[in-house]
Design a protein around this nucleic acid. Structure first.
Lengths: 214, 214
DNA sequence: CACACAATCCCCAAATTCGGGGATTGTGTG
DNA sequence: CACACAATCCCCGAATTTGGGGATTGTGTG
């Protein structure tokens, strides 16, 4: 049984190249070939592919949004993202949105067929760096607040100052907002630094957020 | 600065082989070499490695349990699992327990150094099938990026700078750590501020954490 | 080959933060 | 009433950040 492939790629020459690569292998057949994702749900409904190859740069709609919409409509459909570089932030976002893997445009000829087979066997081809970030996210989501976490003896006013800071205010705007002097804000901050054992704005904000202090 | 490597491998010949491979590369030095994991916490405390290479079959204690215990004690320590086959269920469990990647025993000679470097650069070498399962688990945990969230086109270097910042570093210490000039850090920060649409350290740190940018 | 972009680094000057010290006043408690 | 603490505010001076501008070099793409 041949795997049905749909292509969403703006560049006609690339679409044709992919078509040729698929034709050369008995495992695949071209289900559809589209120059934009404006009607991707309708197009996919019509051609019923098993795997979609999508260019991350495709115009008409944001690639990431397209991945989200397609996966919402067709949860079992595999999407292989075409990208120029592994460092593209949208690649990570596409993976999170549900793409099964990616392929570098520069390596289309050598790796397309293998990646498609990989996906059809249940694999998710991706770079170690993307994999790392996915693992890290999973780890952070799995971590309940550790037992025995210390709570900090911040006073009510200190907590208010810290909250303003985390919300993007600086000392000047905090003093205006809380109707206290700039020096008062500084005094509170000194106390907060001492209690939280930090020594800079970035440390105190990060700690406040990670440990749900405000 | 050489990366310190500790080995937990029952087979003395394999320990020696790994030792030789590490010696042949200037990037690594052997921190410790152990035949069991009975005292892995004590051993790691003593030799202070940056990366641990551990055999999944190692006797003395279950490999997965060892990974869990080590990661609980040394959260930032990287663990590279040695396995005979990628299909071993314990491999997937080890990855979930916190291992950063794995290496096939049959490919030790050709891939060990590359995998160690990969890990030290922040990657997580793993097979497409393991990656797929991790993604699937992530999806099941309902971790998918919330609808409407924009992704930011930060470059790799910008991301590294931002990560250091979130981890409490200032411009000065970031420049030291990344071996670039203070002004380069500033340039990256200007770009980051622009892309994330913020105007202060507190804003950028808060945004980075809340939106899982680093 | 021309172009665009990333990464790197430099300069000026103002604004803000940090570490250190000090003070007064109000409030609650024993 | 004495005491401890929170909240408030002041000062000095150094260090860091911010906003603005500029530059060169290397790399990838069409």
């Amino acid at each position: 049984m041949k795997l049905r492939i749909a292509i969403f790629e703006q560049n006609k020459n690339i679409r044709n190249s992919i078509d040729q690569l698929l034709n050369a292998d008995k495992s695949f057949e071209l289900a559809g070939s589209f120059g934009h994702t404006n009607h991707c749900i309708t197009d996919i409904n019509a051609c019923r592919p098993d795997i979609v190859i999508m260019d991350i740069d495709i115009a008409g709609t944001d690639g990431i949004e397209a991945v989200s919409r397609i996966k919402a409509e067709f949860p079992k459909l595999h999407i292989l993202i075409q990208t120029v570089t592994e460092e593209d932030e949208r690649l990570y976002a596409s993976i999170l949105a549900g793409a099964s893997g990616y392929i570098l445009k520069s390596r289309l000829r050598t790796t397309l067929v293998r990646s498609l087979k990989e996906i059809s066997f249940g694999g998710a081809p991706m770079s170690p760096s993307i994999a790392r970030r996915v693992l890290h996210l999973l780890k952070r989501k799995n971590v309940a607040r550790p037992k025995g976490v210390v709570s900090y003896p911040l006073t009510q006013r200190e907590r208010e100052v810290l909250k303003c800071l985390v919300n993007g205010h600086n000392y000047k705007t905090i003093s205006t907002g809380m109707k206290i002097s700039y020096e008062t804000v500084r005094s509170h901050m000194k106390k907060i630094y001492e209690k939280l054992q930090v020594a800079s704005l970035t440390e105190v904000v990060a700690k406040a957020i990670y440990q749900n202090i405000v």
